[in-house]
Amino acid sequence: MAGVTVRMPFVRRAAALRALVLAALSVAIAAAALAAAAPARAEAPERVVALTPFTANILAQLGVTPVAVAEPAATEEKLSPRLRGAQRLAMSHPNGPNLEQLVALRPDAVFSSPVWRAGTPKIQNLGIRVYDSLDPQRLGTVPIGIKKIAKIVGREAQGVALANRVQREYRAASAGIRKHPRVLLVLGLAQYTLAMLGNSWGGDIIEAAGGELVTKNIKPIGRTSEGAVVGNLSNEAVVRMNPDVIIVVPHGAADEVPAIARYYRNFAPWRKTKAARTGRIYVPTDDLLLQATSDPASLIRKVRREYLKN
């Protein structure tokens, strides 16, 4: 009996140990199986291509040099000197880059934009990651865009620091505003008054620079997510709004800007506005008011200095 009484706890202990080992093994196998089934956590891409000036410049500031960047148009934001070595890709609608050229670069990730979204699935089908919604559409989303880019390339700490610095700088650029002129911001395309609305990048910059955007309360036709930030404004409304300043952002080559400026300064439907009468119709030589820049503070200062004079 004693032997039995002695052996029974031992047998129970051994059985319990076996059960414990089996359970641990089962958990380990299940965990391994789950890990194998779950998508692998995206590793920071080593070879990246940037198709917008914003993403290219932010990557450069984060210390990541893209293997290629989109060939900037004549009036677009200047690329950082750090991108001098990156190959230039010519862009064309609807895909953006030539897919054969792109594949030859063996990129792990492509930073694209909504403009080239038609090409996104085609690039993804080639096994390349595509991020096409990181270009900020509003001034307030610049820091968010920077942090997202930084996270993707595995430089979160630098991203936070850069985002905070950019935010601090553009807030400082809005300080000390003395005058708030009423501003109409239009896309200089033919004889139509394609006005930038309050939900646009350009509208945000004007407001940050102390201007009062005369179209800020006009609701766009269509969805903002689909790019409805511009509206064909009636010239009757322009005359009634009577802006102090009209800024026409041309979509032309830089050498065409003087002719475009002459056209709009003599544009008959605007002739009675205060802007036309006081000679304050401006035509910039760049298109920084149309799309996000990595340095909004400089842009705000430029708008204040050259156009709003406040």
Binding site: G188, A190, E256, A259, I260, R262, Y263
Partner: peptide, 8 residues
């Protein structure tokens, strides 16, 4: 030639 839009 957007600079010559008057000729449209």
């Amino acid at each position: 030639s957007p600079g010559h839009v008057a000729l449209l």
